[in-house]
Amino acid sequence: MKSIKIFAPATVANLSCGFDVLGCCLDNVGDEMVISITADPGVKITKIEGANLPMETHKNVAGVAVEAFLKAYGENIGVAIEIYKKIKAGSGIGSSAASSSGAVWAVNHLLGNPFTTHELVKFAMEGEKLASGNAHADNVAPALLGGFTLVRSYDPLDIIKLHSPEDLVMTVIHPQIEVKTSDSRSVIKHKVTLKKAIHQWGNLGGFVAGLFTEDYDLIGRSLDDVIIEPLRSILIPEFNNVKNAAIAKGALGSGISGSGPSIFALSKGMKVANDVATAIQDIYEKTGIDFDIHISKINSKGIKIIEETEYRK
């Protein structure tokens, strides 16, 4: 039996100007998973700690993602999955994506990498489809590839890994409230004005250019969402105050992480990121709402191996 223990990272998606197409990978926030190739055919979820999630394979995002992988692989092998959740479900920092991407990456590694990392994205997306009803890639792509990623196209799927400036640091506050992805998607309008679309296209292009040129001011100017954030922000207590406080403390920009309720602030340097954390913590301490704060550099590698073993009888 081959077994691997991995770190499956949290992610921040959308990044204001890139709804469903932009995402980045965090470095010190994530789940741990143990994936094993076993003698008994089929995919089994054998242990879950840290969250009340389904043990049934067809109801678990990791199980569904691995089943999609094995269908393409063409062999009915045995896979056992242990999940140690440290990313809270519904947090807006890619909890389901961590499980989906971590599981398929680990199985692929144990089988000698029959698929490229880019090819794994479509299998992990099946887990996202189960979780939210929409097979989006803006969380699973950065979890698998690391750093910042852009989904240029969904049909055909075309994922581009972007440059990650070393000085960028993410501060994320996660209010302990539930904002269902289905609810956050229900408030989105399906038609936008040409004026707003042009504004958003410019910001997306500016953000990508800012990453490659390491122009931090351009990155900050581009973190502006005129389409999604005005509608979703009403679901998140103190959103505007948190955003304004983060920018006042020097953050390049701030916005909703994924579908919320988490709020991200992107900064240049760890000192600014820590100052931002203190400022937004002060705001939420007055609300009576429990919260977590994460401060993380950008993880340019994605999923990481913690331990790998092979057992022989």
Rank of each mutant, 00 (worst) to 15 (best):
Pro9Lys: 15
Ala10Thr: 11
Thr11Ile: 12
Val12Ala: 12
Ala13Gln: 03
Ser16Val: 09
Val21Gln: 02
Leu26Ala: 12
Asp27Phe: 12
Val29Pro: 01
Met33Asn: 14
Val34Gly: 09
Ile37Lys: 06
Val43Ala: 10
Ile48Ser: 05
Asn52Arg: 10
Thr57Cys: 10
His58Phe: 07
Ala62Glu: 03
Ala65Gln: 04
Val66Thr: 13
Glu67Val: 02
Ala72Asp: 15
Gly74Val: 07
Gly74Pro: 00
Val79Met: 11
Glu82Val: 14
Gly90Ser: 06
Gly92Cys: 00
Gly94Leu: 14
Ser95Pro: 10
Gly102Pro: 14
Val104Lys: 08
Ala106Tyr: 07
Asn113Ala: 14
Pro114His: 11
Thr116Tyr: 00
Leu120Phe: 00
Lys122Phe: 03
Phe123Met: 02
Ala124Arg: 01
Gly127His: 06
Leu130Asn: 01
Ala131Cys: 02
Ala131Asp: 06
Ser132Leu: 07
Leu145Ser: 06
Ser153Ile: 03
Asp155Ser: 12
Asp158His: 10
Lys161Ala: 02
His163Pro: 01
Pro165His: 03
Glu166Met: 01
Thr171Ser: 07
Val172Lys: 01
Ile173Asp: 04
His174Gly: 01
Val179Leu: 02
Val179Cys: 00
Asp183Cys: 02
Ser184Thr: 04
Gly202Val: 14
Leu204Met: 10
Gly210Asn: 09
Gly210Met: 01
Glu214Cys: 04
Tyr216Ser: 00
Ser222Gln: 08
Asp224Gly: 11
Ser233Leu: 03
Ile234Leu: 05
Glu238Ile: 02
Phe239Ala: 02
Asn240Arg: 13
Lys243Asp: 03
Leu252Ser: 08
Gly258Ile: 02
Pro261Ala: 04
Phe264Pro: 06
Gly269Ser: 07
Ala273Met: 08
Ala273Thr: 00
Val276Gly: 11
Lys286Ala: 15
His294Tyr: 15
Ser300Leu: 06
Lys304Phe: 05
Ile306Asp: 08
Glu307Tyr: 11
Glu307Asp: 14
Glu307Cys: 06
